[in-house]
Design a protein around this nucleic acid. Sequence first.
DNA 1: CGTTGGGTTGATATATGTCAAAGAGCGTGG
DNA 2: CCACGCTCTTTGACATATATCAACCCAACG
Lengths: 206, 206
Amino acid sequence: MKSYRSWTTGETIVMEGEPLPFVGSVVSGCATLTRSMEDGRTQMVGLLMPSDFVGRPGRTTAAYEVVAATDLVLCQFRRDAFEEMMAETPNVSQRLLEMSLDELDAARDWMLVLGRKTAREKVATLLANVLRRAPTDQRPLRAELPLTRDAMATYLGLTIETVSRQISALRKAEIIRLEGNRTVLCDDYGALLTEAGDDDDGDGLY
Amino acid sequence: MKSYRSWTTGETIVMEGEPLPFVGSVVSGCATLTRSMEDGRTQMVGLLMPSDFVGRPGRTTAAYEVVAATDLVLCQFRRDAFEEMMAETPNVSQRLLEMSLDELDAARDWMLVLGRKTAREKVATLLANVLRRAPTDQRPLRAELPLTRDAMATYLGLTIETVSRQISALRKAEIIRLEGNRTVLCDDYGALLTEAGDDDDGDGLY
DNA sequence: CGTTGGGTTGATATATGTCAAAGAGCGTGG
DNA sequence: CCACGCTCTTTGACATATATCAACCCAACG
């Protein structure tokens, strides 16, 4: 009932509306959830990182397209077996509730980004999120972007060109530096958060 | 442990970050969830209708501001009592999981609206959503808007003016009609869905 | 070497925001 | 009853952020 499976960068794991006979969780790598309109406009609605859950108990079709953003390994469970397990062990569904609520909060936070932030703030927000997972003991902060410019644009509700321009602008403003196209460095994380339109720190007191 | 409480239109139920000592569900009326930036930009991240759940088990502070959009009645439970109940009766947490996943899907659908739809499509999408709950046996479809133009703008990631203009445009295109400011009529729901950028019907087959 | 896919940059178009004025509904108090 | 002052809404003129279209760069790879 439990198995592992791998995908390589760019491979589609499931298409929107297709039957999804399993649930699972990300072991390594990174996947994108996207929703599309008939004319091709698409919006990323989630970014799955290791330990994130894939699929929905109680639904047999995928509501979103899932694509491997990097090489990816998933740990899969057959749906029926998993649902049995949920029914038997309340801890599982409690934990799943916890995770769903976290994802709901994340989705709603992202709604603020999509609805109200400027292009520069959007890009800064994304970079700040990526850098947040970087090892905190090293300066400068350094992180590998798991997304292409195109994927970033899809995530941020922008075009590739705008993403590229804003990254250049942040670089020129010396908020960030780049090594190649995929690694970001940041000497002043507070400055980056300011560009993102967020507080410099999380305490939120006034 | 269970009690009812009422609010009138416009009243704040909880502020962002404030302690929230209860959970509950909407009995009647309609409330908005909003998230804000320090400079005042705000985005609605959820619209609570009757039977929707308020609050989050396991968290003691509100992540969003909750405001009564209309006169509102809530059925409240003390948090500790509710969490006890959840621990004892697995059905409760299963049901709650179900509801959270539905809300997560709704939030993600809305991300597509915020990130990729034009102003006209956004407004049409909102009106279509409101009209979907109207009695289906009557023509034309008729529904009362639970939101002011300002609340719609906050929901759609637009300004009041743009919302107003787009409503006028849809009226001039004879996609919708208005009675006063708050009731929408629609003779051709399919046309409205087309304006919303959605399929004319839900079957989604090609 | 050519080709390809991702990325950058520039010129221009356009959708939406901003600022400003005025209309419509509605309760309140004289 | 009417005038007044609200708030919500509509509409117009103009500004601007972002999309669009196009060219080019660069590294990887056959």
